[in-house]
């Protein structure tokens, strides 16, 4: 189980825009093991999507630029590959499921054509072989009547079905890593539950590694083994899922969990929001990015960026006060973070 399949080392991505440099991803590193499922959790602007798009050089260059880093997949550094070589990786070794199933499928092509394209290209299948495999895949993801429906267009399917088709396309070339970029955000809760159930089942069956990107800590609780929390382009905490929820050690993760509504809530209980606003990423980071919103903030937070340090079994946190927070001994700072 512990064969590392994907290794990301010190990845830095920036966007050079007219308004200045956007520091989108600020040096993140992680490993993904064979058959492991991992979640990258963060809010909009946390760099979670940019960080995985950078793996396959899928960000627009320019204005984007991968400033440094290594992405080792099956022993090769993807960032050193030529575009031609990358074509063979994208969709083949790493596949992606996108957020919005309505816009990620081409509306003027039948789903049969869209599904078989990649298989003919990457696996050298004939049209007939690819069609047969497409039918198989559609049945696997639970789109009924697959043979007839290959000639339908995306608008003839519902959102949930389109997402199933997106998943089937992602699986078509037997990727070793499947990246799911908020695949359920555009869907209703009942359909979201269907899709999560499906991905869990497929992972068991096919044994691939999954990176699940989401802003919702609730979604990943039952879905993945490891969680990485990102804030402002940094990994602020990473841990196995049970450890993360039980011994939350970074103030941001703690804040995220507390601001989520609990279904088992008591009457008239109030939510605990994180004060302030998301960070401005056009400033070169020089201190902890969460400090302006943090209730545990101390002077040192404004002086240096806290490194991601081991604080427990497979548990890493980037906070000067992680140990205190983890053990629950913390005395909160006297002054609240500078709220809006």
């Amino acid at each position: 189980m512990s064969n590392t399949i994907l290794e990301v080392r010190d990845l830095v991505t920036r966007f050079y825009t007219e308004e200045g440099i956007v520091y989108a991803v600020n040096g993140i590193s992680y490993n993904l093991d064979e058959g492991e499922s991992m979640a990258i959790v963060g809010e909009s602007g946390s760099g979670k999507s940019v960080s995985v798009l950078s793996l396959m050089k899928l960000i627009p260059i320019p204005p984007g630029k991968i400033v440094q880093g290594e992405v080792i997949l099956n022993g090769r550094d993807l960032l050193q590959l030529s575009n031609e070589e990358l074509y063979n990786v994208r969709g083949n070794e790493i596949a992606m499921i996108f957020q919005d199933p309505m816009t990620s499928l081409n509306p003027v092509l039948t789903i049969g054509l869209q599904m078989t394209e990649a298989m003919q290209l990457h696996l050298g299948m004939t049209k007939e072989q690819a069609t047969a495999r497409a039918v198989e895949l559609l049945e696997l993801v639970g789109v009924g009547n697959a043979e007839d429906r290959l000639n339908d267009y995306p608008h003839q399917f519902s959102g949930g079905q389109n997402q199933r088709i997106g998943i089937a396309m992602g699986l078509s070339c037997n990727p070793s890593v499947l990246i799911a970029d908020e695949p359920t955000t555009a869907l209703d809760v009942t359909i979201q539950a269907q899709i999560m159930e499906l991905v869990l089942k497929l992972k068991e069956q096919l044994g691939m590694s999954i990176i699940w990107i989401t802003h919702d800590l609730g979604v990943v609780a039952n879905l993945v083994e490891k969680v990485i929390v990102m804030y402002s382009g940094f990994i602020v905490e990473s841990a196995p899922v049970n450890e993360l929820y039980k011994h939350t050690s970074h103030p941001y993760t703690k804040g995220l969990l507390e601001s989520l509504p609990q279904l088992a809530a008591q009457k008239n209980e109030r939510l605990t929001p994180i004060p302030g606003n998301p960070p401005d990423q056009t400033q070169e980071p020089s201190h902890c990015a969460f400090a302006p919103r943090c209730r545990y903030v101390i002077d040192h937070c404004w002086e240096a960026i806290p490194p991601l340090e081991s604080i427990g079994p497979d548990h890493f946190s980037a906070c000067w006060r992680s140990q205190e927070i983890r053990s629950g001994l913390t005395i909160e700072a006297q002054t609240e973070g500078s709220a809006a």
Partner: peptide
Amino acid sequence: AIPMPDPELEGKRQRIILEGD
């Protein structure tokens, strides 16, 4: 169908998964 931010509770829960759309 509402996901809960707690892996222990999630593991114990009985989900009703609706069929279809």
